[in-house]
Simulated assay, not measured.
Amino acid sequence: MTIAAEPLTRFDRVQDRQDTARRLLASSARKSYDPLIEVDWDAPIDHESFYGMTPEWCSLYGTEMWDQMTEAQRITLTEHEAASISATGIWFEIILMQMLIRDAYKQDPASPHFQFALTEIADECRHSTMFAKAAEHFGIPNYERPKWINFLSRPFKALASGSLAFGGTLAAEEILDMMQRDFMKDPRVQPVTRTVSKIHVLEEARHIRFAREETVRIAADMSPIRRHLTRLMLAITVYMVVFCLVNPKVYEAAGLDKKAAKKAARTNTYYNDRKRNGCAKTVSFLDECGLIGGPGKYLLRRGAII
């Protein structure tokens, strides 16, 4: 199913884009945060009373292995999974910044669209710094992505544009957003993690709005061939992001057998259902834009996204 929209003239599309950018620029002026000031990076860390993230979002929650873990192991695992998720966020936000810079390069500097693109780039720079400082705060090492992921993502970050760029951004950001909305409200979670999540959720709402409206505008004019290709590339992008969320090394940090933990996480119906339910709104939107379908559906099912 695709969104049925009345035909717009080129002038209407350009005007609509600029109006959206003006509203988002005004929102940025009213409510933006500096994480170096807003987050209490000197706060003491209580490793005994607080989880690193909402435990229900842990990849092993609901499994027999989780039931057998000590509370200390559960806390350690959630701290390391939160750091792994943040590392994935940094990775994709750096890719996003490159795509936004390419998009801005072609725009009129006097236009609101250009100016909001730069504003979003500045936001993403702060977010990546914030995620990095959070990992440093908890003393957790950087969880790198597999080499094959880095290899496959290079063409995407170098060439992605249009609906592929904005659709991929939307899917990746909303995956993080659905988790962090729980983190920020959960009193069981480390205070620093809650503050970091709150800042990211509040500012990312503007970015998601920007990506959604751009995706609708661009997808409406796509040729059939470009639409099929975009569907496949979007599915690959979303699959890679979901695949990278939990680095298997986090299990070793909690004193678990990595091979057994990977298997338990892969077959964890509870965790897969949470991912699927959290992604449902974005998947429905992309489907309405005609960007879900074809061979890409196999990858989305494999990643427990649909």
Rank of each mutant, 00 (worst) to 15 (best):
M99Y: 07
L176H: 00
M130H: 10
F166W: 04
L232Y: 07
K157P: 02
R209C: 11
R17E: 12
H47D: 03
I121V: 15
G162C: 01
S197T: 14
N277H: 06
A72L: 08
D67Q: 15
P141T: 05
K157M: 07
I101H: 11
V201I: 13
A135K: 14
Y51W: 09
L60P: 02
G139H: 04
I3T: 08
E144T: 02
G255W: 11
F138T: 05
N268Q: 03
F285A: 08
R194Y: 13
A280F: 01
G168Q: 09
T76H: 10
Y298T: 10
F92L: 12
I3G: 06
R126L: 12
E204H: 10
A29Y: 11
P146W: 12
G293C: 04
F50G: 00
P146F: 14
A43W: 04
L164A: 00
M179R: 10
I140V: 15
V238E: 08
A117Y: 01
Q73G: 09
V201F: 01
K147Q: 11
D16W: 00
I218S: 05
R226D: 09
V238W: 06
I236F: 09
Y239I: 09
G290Q: 05
R227G: 13
T2D: 11
N150V: 03
S161M: 13
A172M: 15
K259T: 12
E81V: 11
H113I: 11
D42P: 04
E56I: 05
A117M: 08
N272L: 12
R188F: 09
A82M: 03
G303H: 07
I95N: 01
R209P: 06
H228G: 01
A158K: 15
D16L: 09
I225T: 06
P248C: 10
I225C: 05
R226L: 11
C125T: 10
A205N: 05
A72Y: 06
S27R: 14
A4N: 03
R10Q: 15
F50S: 00
P248F: 08
S59E: 10
V241E: 09
L164K: 00
T70G: 02
S128I: 01
A172G: 11
F138M: 08
V39S: 00
R302D: 05
I85A: 14
A26N: 11
E213D: 01
V238P: 01
A172N: 09
L300A: 07
G167P: 01
T269E: 14
A4E: 05
N150Q: 08
S153C: 01
L245W: 04
K258W: 05
L164P: 00
M184L: 15
I305Q: 10
Q18E: 15
A4Y: 01
V250A: 03
T20D: 13
E136I: 06
I306S: 10
L164C: 00
Q68F: 02
T78L: 04
K259P: 02
A87E: 12
F285Q: 04
A220L: 03
L159W: 04
R302Q: 08
V241T: 13
M222P: 07
I306A: 13
R102W: 01
Y105D: 14
W91Q: 08
Q180C: 00
Y61M: 03
R13L: 03
H228M: 09
W148A: 07
E203Q: 08
H137Q: 13
T195Q: 07
G62A: 02
E252V: 12
D16T: 03
T230L: 12
R17Y: 05
P295W: 09
I199L: 10
R206D: 01
G162Q: 07
K185V: 13
P109C: 06
